[in-house]
Design a protein around this nucleic acid. Structure first.
Length: 520
RNA sequence: CGGGGCGUAGCUCAGCCUGGUAGAGCGCUUGCUUUGGGAGCAAGAAGUCGUCAGUUCGAAUCUGGCCGCCCCGACCA
């Protein structure tokens, strides 16, 4: 912890510091440190005693559960079913696809023993010594293409067995050198879809379908606009023929890959021997795909929507969409106020938003009102409602929206609120998407020359997404990325990027712009 | 894994240079006061100073190894 050096700034802002923010430092001042502080202030996750592995706390895990449930529904709608495969992968499986093996080799945790032996030490303590060395070590899955491929090889015999449309929700492990809560941890939670198809065309359609599912989920559920596109060869998933990505811009104007969908061609089916007898009575290799999103999406959400008072969670995925704060200035009216809050919560829970019952919490803890209020601001609950003795008399409720300032408060007749609450949540959801879209669009520029490009990514400039004509090679891309710390995030899909021009590096003709940015 | 910074109470840190075995603020507990608000006063609980070894009569403080965390880089969802 190097930031936050002034003791004065470390204390929570006092009421007299009217311009103070709940989070120190601000985004402007030190974005990476702001991120760390926000995750902690929102009580979403913490570093654990295990290197690189986080503890996801209830508020963070509740968000993940909502993401999981809503995405899972979309997977089911598109014909997929869930299954579960082993955590441990025989080492030899990873050797089957050369590029794939090479891609993950440097970040694998390896299991080499299967038992421990207690050994008494002279000082009375006990040491556990690994024994029972395995004939073949296992790798803790960094991804499951190989082991699911082996299962698919057993399951597929005829074209009639295809397509296989499987998804798995699980944890994976990649021994990252520089972990960061949610964004890059040694162990993380994700879903990985794996499918096998009879034809190339069908597999490509599947890849694009899931790519679209991610794009829509991020936009409609997480209120994050993304640029869907294809990765260049340099950035492709190890072993894939094509990798599609959804790239989001967060508030420091860097890009973050929020989801990927890979067309694997026959690379993995040949490696795992996924063969079937086709309609023409010949043995053929299946065409496979894989696609995934991870808990990194939570980090993306925090960086996309958070402000200097903490996290802001879009209503659709918030663990609690509404928190009711009873105002209890006098002990003698406390019971009455709590009862009124509970009654309101019950009425609200009977309503649905985006097909799910409203998630309403009444915070009855015996704490100062202000402390409670700020806690929920930092956690990013979309809507706070306050109700006290005066409101009961006037039949009104104080409504605070997290997408507005911490002091913004609107007194609304209770019946009106009940009638309009879903609409209000929708407004917050829309406002967050609009805000994130405006941020992205105002920091995305079409540039033509190398000078413009260099100025855009210069040390002290804002940066952002640079839309460039590109016809360079992988080596050109490598050189450029080393020099300016930017990469091609994707070759975006969509007509708005298709136009004739000249590559800003080589001068060769180009028919489409690509997105350059610094990235996570 | 390379460069830099840092590990002292739950959190943020002071003390280390000039060795004599611990402090502050916030948080926590209790009491009183206060109450549309991250409040005030008082009392209290809480740390084998990351870890292992060395130097020393004596180590948070000096030396070395290891582990971990943070920032930058390489790598990556």
């Amino acid at each position: 912890m190097t930031g936050c050096c002034l003791p004065l700034l470390c204390a929570p802002p006092s009421p007299s510091m009217s311009n103070a923010t709940a989070i120190t430092p601000t985004r402007e001042k030190d974005f990476p440190e702001w991120y760390q502080q926000v995750v902690r202030a929102a009580d979403m996750a913490e570093n654990s005693e295990v290197r690189g592995c986080m503890v996801i706390k209830p508020w963070g895990y509740g968000l993940w559960e909502n993401i999981q449930r809503q995405l899972d529904a979309k997977f089911k709608e598109t014909g997929h079913v869930n299954a579960y495969f082993p955590l441990l992968i025989p080492l030899s499986y990873l050797e089957k696809e050369a590029q794939h093996a090479e891609g993950f080799a440097t970040e694998c945790a390896v299991v080499t023993h299967h038992r421990l032996e207690a050994q008494k030490q002279e000082d009375g303590t006990t040491k556990m010594i690994p024994t029972g060395e395995l004939a073949e070590p296992f790798v803790i899955r960094p991804t499951s293409e190989t082991i699911i491929g082996a299962a698919f090889a057993r399951w597929v015999e005829s074209y009639r067995d295809l397509p296989l449309l499987i998804n798995q929700w699980c944890n994976v492990m990649r021994w990252e050198m520089r972990p960061r809560l949610f964004l890059r941890t040694a162990e993380f939670l994700w879903q990985e879809g794996h499918t096998a198809h009879e034809t190339e065309e069908e597999a490509i359609t599947e890849t694009r379908t899931m790519h679209k599912v991610y794009e829509e989920f991020l936009r409609d559920h997480l209120a994050i606009p993304v640029i869907p596109g294809e990765k260049t060869e340099r950035e492709r998933f190890p072993g894939a023929v094509q990798t599609f990505t959804v790239e989001a811009m967060v508030q420091d104007k860097k890009a973050i890959q929020a989801g990927t969908s890979h067309y694997l061609g026959q690379n993995f089916s040949k490696a795992a021997n996924i063969q079937f007898l086709g309609r023409d009575n010949t043995r053929q290799f299946a065409y496979t795909t894989s696609w995934g999103v991870s808990t990194r999406m939570i980090g993306t959400l925090i960086m996309a929507h958070g402000d200097d008072d903490g996290v802001i969670i879009p209503p659709r995925v918030a663990p609690n969409q509404i928190v009711i704060l009873p105002v209890t200035p006098k002990p003698e009216t406390r019971d009455e106020v709590i009862a009124a809050c509970e009654a309101l919560a019950k009425t609200l829970r009977a309503q649905t938003y985006a097909g799910e019952p409203l998630r309403v919490h009444v915070d009855k803890r015996d704490l100062q009102g202000g402390a409670k209020n700020w806690e929920w601001i930092k956690k990013g609950v979309p809507m706070r409602l306050e109700m006290g003795p005066r409101d009961i008399t006037s039949r009104s409720v104080a409504v605070c929206r997290r997408d507005q300032g911490p002091k913004a408060k609107e007194f609304v007749p209770k019946e009106d609120l009940i009638r309009s609450v879903v609409e209000r949540l929708e407004e917050i959801q829309d406002a967050l998407l609009a805000r994130a879209t405006a941020l992205r669009d105002s920091n995305m520029k079409k540039l033509e020359t190398m000078d413009e490009f260099k100025a855009f990514f210069a040390e002290n400039s804002e940066g952002g997404f640079a839309l460039m004509h590109w016809a360079g090679s992988s080596d050109d891309e490598e050189t450029l990325s080393k020099e300016l710390k930017v990469t091609i995030r994707c070759i975006p899909l969509g007509d708005q990027y298709a136009e004739e021009g000249k590559c800003f590096l080589t001068g060769k003709p180009s028919s489409r712009r690509v997105v350059f940015a610094r990235s996570y």
